[in-house]
Design a protein around this nucleic acid. Sequence first.
RNA 1: GGAUUCUUAGCUCAGUUGGUUAGAGCACCUGCCUUACAAGCAGGGGGUCACAGGUUCGAGUCCUGUAGAGUCCACCA
Length: 851
Amino acid sequence: MLDTKYDHKKVEEGKYNYWLKKGYFEAKNDDREKFSMVLPPPNVTNKLHLGHAWNVTIQDILSRYKRMDGFDVLWIPGTDHAAIATEAKVVAKLKEEGINKYELGRDGFLKEAWEWKDKYAQNIRSQWAKMGISLDYTRERFTLDEVSTKAVNYAFIKMYNDGLIYKGEKIINWDPEARTALSNEEVIYKDIEGAFYHLKYFIEGTNDYLDVATTRPETLFGDTAVAVNPKDERYNKLIGKNVILPIVNRLIPIIGDMHADMEKGTGVVKITPAHDPNDFEVGNRHNLDRIIIMDETAHMNENALMLKGLDRFTAREKLVELLKEKDLLINIEKITHSVGHSERTGVMVEPYISKQWFVKMEPLAKGVLDNQKTKNKIHFVPKRFEKILNNWMSDCHDWCISRQLWWGIRIPAWYKDDEIKVQETSPGDGWVQDNDVLDTWFSSALWPFSTLGWPDNTDLYKKYYPTDVLVTAYDIIFFWIARMAFQGLEFTGKAPFKTCLSHGLIRDKDGRKMSKSLGNGIDPIDMIDKYGCDALRFFLTTNTALGQDLRFDEEKVKSTWNFINKIWNASRFVLMNTENIKEFDFSNLTFSDKWILTKLNITIKDTRKYMDKYEFNNVGSILYSFIWDDFCDAYIEYSKFNMDNISTKSTLLYVLTNILKLLHPFMPFVTEEIYSKLSIKEEESIMISTYPKENKDNNYIDTLSLMDEIRNFITKSRTIKKDNNIKKDDKYDFICNNEDASNLIKNILKLTIENKIEDTNSYNELVIESKTDILECKLTYYYKISKEDEENKLNEIKKEIEKLENSIQRRKKLLSNAGYIKNAPSNLVEEEKTKLKNEETNLNLLKEKLN
RNA sequence: GGAUUCUUAGCUCAGUUGGUUAGAGCACCUGCCUUACAAGCAGGGGGUCACAGGUUCGAGUCCUGUAGAGUCCACCA
């Protein structure tokens, strides 16, 4: 028997380990149809936040649903080594201990990093366990493990040989803190206070100067030209002349280039090809020198002359002083502009020329775009997210994949003198391996198949690839989804997943993004402690339409807990009354039994429909109202009058069993707890029981509309009784043309024999009447009434008449509309006619009362 | 500049290929400790669906425009 109150801590304890030990989470690789997913691997150093909780719950709901529904489910867990993110954290930790990364050396550092990784991976696993998610740990992977490394090397080498990877010199985003290149996606633009420094670039041989505005004056040491727009009448006659570079006193040419925007700034722009991506392009067009003026830590080098050795910000201050001294500074104009920052270290990114490895994007992107036009396309849910992918794919730059880090998969390229060989192992003596590692996304791009043992043609790969669904928040579509898409197509010829399901982001109660800096983050583990994992899961997945952001509201988690408590108590009632039922017996069903069984069928059908469409919010409200409104508030109350009927008891138990199963993907723990107490159960665990199917044998469609009429009649009676202050022992008379309805109404409204009246003289009457094709009922209360009450009563009747008349008028108008009759579906028209007829009958009844 | 989401009850949100009297939770009001549940039960109030047009027999839903809020991408000398 269940405790009197739902205690989530007690319920959740021990169950996860039980499932794990039983091997329920493991894919069996048998001949059943498969359903496979890979878990988006969290960064190994992360603590899981509410967004992860949401993400994994959606996946777990799918796994549990599919598993119960007869699929061989493979759900692969794993973690991402997160190259720069982890390295930055390990560096910071070492720094606290007074250890410098570079002094420690590559091998020593990696040892530290692996220890760090092992510790954090364990944290993540325990958080997954708290969430109750059914991962197949026997297939767990890490993006830096042997299997993944093998796949990455294979992919790199093949792409190099196919000309899809090349080494080239370009301007990249440089992180001077981590001393590495970054991809465009690792740069976060932030608005900061800055300034336009207006400098005097004197024209050679004159006393005239050009006003050149720049936000990074210290880069002037690397200037090799000044550009104006060739169409700009103010300056175009100067093209071909030289200007004197301030401080440096080097002559540089004035060139004409469309890059100079006449509308912007002063219309004159300094060109620093080694330190700006646009200038780099201009430099290529005009064959300009590239002068690098900083080192890898963003300190000025010898090209910065007297500023050598200063870091970039000090150098700027110093330079401004020098310019002022020499009267070369016109003014400083304060502006707010957006400047790139490293996503991981937070420092300002320095555009920097550097030799890096790149993935040639154009052919790969085309592959994805072409595939999206075929029937093998990736289906996005919601559909609109496909556009994000397509947009990104049709406008993407080559992908910088080399990182000057140690924590990652080392690039399989070997050098000897001027020779380069790309292969997995050293070609021999004297060959030195590339020092750089690969962008972490290069390995995660292969995740859906590298986890399955690709490039070997393993059994896992053969059966489970491509995967069925990939679930992520929409903000990661271009970081990851896009990259998996083109790598999947490139290497396996197939999109790596059939469906991409995107949920939104979690916001706080005021709609702000949850972030560390705002301090408004909520730890899912705290919520689990307070309300239980089941409440958190149900709240997360049923409170918003897919793809929409979710506002976190603790009150709602609380009310979800109440819902679970309601289920708990209903279950207590059922268990109390069905302890000795060992076999279902439906031979003697009452009217309300038939009704709830039919309702259950509808609920199962609708639930399946919305589960298959991933519309969990709809599943949530269907189950909520079926359980609370139909099962608890109505059926359980009705069943109390038939407790000597074995079929009613069977129905109670049967419906509860199905409710538990329908809820199980959402609330694995509490459903398992209650299921374990049922007197009839098909399996030892609800996890391996079968997902409900409609039961055609117990389907009684005609009970539905009659029950609706009965429930309406009951509500109407209660309202009127309350409004008129009818007492428990007031006399009544009741007639009804349907026996089932009559019994139910009498029981629920407590119309006892004792109060039935014979002699109606000297009483006032209060009549509640229903007269439709389905049900004709009349309940009359006899009571002493004051004059005032009498008037109130009349007024109410008048109000009701007015309401009915309006409604009748509206319906008549509608039904006299030829367009409606012609175009609307005929069942709707019929329904309107029936309603009209019923309303007219009721109107007449009321009018009679007035007379 | 491009893309995209949102605006529905006091609050947070649903609302299916358009179907005619728009739903839920919380909050609010009234009455109940009725034997599963007072974290509950029974009943009730509350919305010209941001605004303006259009298409249609019919618009919260489709189209155009306006206003406001959010997000992403690009640019940012």
